[in-house]
C-alpha cells in the first residue's frame, strides 16, 4: 500500500513542515519570524523536489533561496527601519495588518477552488518515472535545445545585477 511506504511518510512530514511554516508566515506579525518561517518553507520545498526526482532543482533551490534570497531579505529588513511593537521591546518588529477577513476568505476560496479544479482532471504520465539523477540530462539540455534561453538568462542576470546595483546606489 502506498500510504505506508517510507516515501509517503517523508512526504507527509515535509507537508507538515512546509505548510506549517507557510501558515506561520501568514500568522506572524514579526518580519524576522516570517523570514525564518520562509527559510523553513524553502527547506521543505527542496525536500519536495527531491521526492519528485528533481535533484538538480533541489540543490539549486537550496543554494539560491536559502543562501541568496534569504540573506537579501535579511539585509532589506536591516537597512529599512522597521516599526517596533507598541510594547516598546526593541526586538519585536511589527507589521500592520488590514482586511484580515477578506484575505482569509479569498485565500480559502483559492485553495479549495484550485483543489477542486485539479481533482477534476485526469492526469497521466508520458513515460515511466526514472529515479536516476537528472543532472547529466539537464546539462545536455542546457547546451542543446535550451541553449538560446540559457544565454538569454545569463545576459538577463547580468542586466538585473547591474541595474540593482545602480538603483540601490545613493543618488544624493
Amino acid at each position: 500500500m502506498i500510504m505506508n511506504s517510507p516515501l509517503m511518510i517523508g512526504f507527509l512530514a515535509l507537508t507538515v513542515l512546509t505548510c506549517g511554516s507557510a501558515f506561520l508566515m501568514l500568522w506572524t506579525k514579526n518580519v524576522l519570524h516570517a523570514a525564518l518561517a520562509m527559510f523553513m518553507t524553502m527547506l521543505g520545498l527542496a525536500g519536495f523536489y527531491v521526492l519528485a526526482f528533481a535533484d538538480v532543482m533541489a540543490v539549486s533551490h537550496l543554494m539560491i533561496y536559502v543562501g541568496g534570497v534569504l540573506i537579501l531579505i535579511l539585509f532589506g529588513i536591516m537597512m529599512t527601519g522597521q516599526r517596533t511593537s507598541k510594547t516598546g521591546q526593541t526586538n519585536e518588529l511589527f507589521t500592520e495588518q488590514k482586511g484580515r477577513f477578506w484575505a482569509f476568505f479569498i485565500g480559502l476560496t483559492v485553495f479549495f477552488g484550485l483543489s477542486w479544479l485539479l481533482g477534476q482532471q485526469d492526469f497521466y504520465a508520458f513515460s515511466d518515472m526514472d529515479q536516476q539523477s537528472k543532472l547529466g540530462r539537464v546539462g545536455l539540455s542546457f547546451m542543446l535545445e535550451y541553449s538560446f534561453p540559457f544565454e538569454l538568462t545569463g545576459v538577463f542576470l547580468l542586466i538585473a545585477l547591474v541595474g540593482a546595483t545602480y538603483i540601490a546606489k545613493n543618488h544624493e
Binding site: 507537508t15 512546509t18 505548510c19 507557510a22 501558515f23 508566515m25 501568514l26 518553507t41 519536495f48 507589521t95 500592520e96 495588518q97 488590514k98 482586511g99 484580515r100 477578506w102 484575505a103 482569509f104 479569498i106 485565500g107 480559502l108 483559492v110 485553495f111 484550485l114 483543489s115 485539479l118
Partner: peptide
Amino acid sequence: VGAFLFATGLSIILIKR
C-alpha cells in the same frame, strides 16, 4: 501542496502592509 502555498502567498500579499 502547491495550491496551499499559492493561497497562503495570496493571503500574505492581501493582509500585510
